[in-house]
Amino acid sequence: MNENAVNSIQEQALDPKDFQIQGADTASAELFARKPVTYWRDAWRRFFENKLAVVALCLLIVITLCTIFVPIFSSHSISAHDLLNRKQWPSAQHWFGTDDLGRDLFVRVWAGGRVSIIIGVLGAAIVAVVGCIYGGIAAYFGGKVDMLMMRIVEILSSVPNLLVVIMMSVVLESSSIPTLLFAMTVTGWCPIARLVRSQMLQISRSEYVMAARLMGVSPLKIVVRHMIPNTFSVIIVAVTFRIPGLIFGEAFLSNVGLGVQPPNTSWGALSSAAQSSLLYYPYMMFFPALLIALTMLSFTLMGDGLRDALDPKLRR
């Protein structure tokens, strides 16, 4: 009986292979089931969930494309006078009407947008780069260097920003775009420098940087791998919020008569030119003013969206 039982089991020919775990070994347990959700991927998803921010982004893309292509492809010229068709209300021929010299406002508004957007975006980029380098150096060296550098920033930022811009553009006399950019960024980088410094200091005191240091990671690698990526999000948000300010600054300067000079134009210059005949020809004011407001609004909304996406802690 006993023998029989053993035999029958043996006859069933049990194969040790049948008892192996299929499809999962120690190596596959280490594999990711799906692609890991990185910080940036997560931020990307959060940003696109925010409908308002996406609409703002689309609007900005449309405005930018128009400023690039409308002056190129339009049949009207930016500076061609047409004295027979002066001060025409918007029509099929002149979509935004014509100004007091008969120039087509549709083309002029988009051409003017070039100046405003270039100054906004380029100015923000300059402010970001200078601020990062300055703030980074101050935080990296610390001690006396840090104190001296921060005192300089404090002195520079205790002068009202608008006054600096006015003084610089009075002193520099010429009103080309590079001059305007210089005037607006000459002290504009100070807040960014402060922000970068305080962020870097905060990160350098955090546990994971301490851990990296203990493991003997070189200071340069710590800066490149930990400090810069972790300050990045804060900088992006701060810089996005600077853009409306820069666009407003340019509009302000042009409004006062210190900005771009004719025949070149900008939204600020267009709306200031329209100011004198506002009561009779309000359309001249309407379009550039609308575009300034829309662009500034879009950048602000996009900044809000970016902040919520990049820094979920700040979300309210």
């Binding site: 509009a251 302000f252 709306s271 200031s272 329209a274 506002l278 004011m285 003013a289 407001a293």
Partner: peptide
């Protein structure tokens, strides 16, 4: 915060 003051002023004046 986003509408420039001079635009607002012009609208009011009008």
């Amino acid at each position: 915060t986003t509408i420039p003051t001079f635009v607002f002023a012009a609208v009011l004046q009008y």
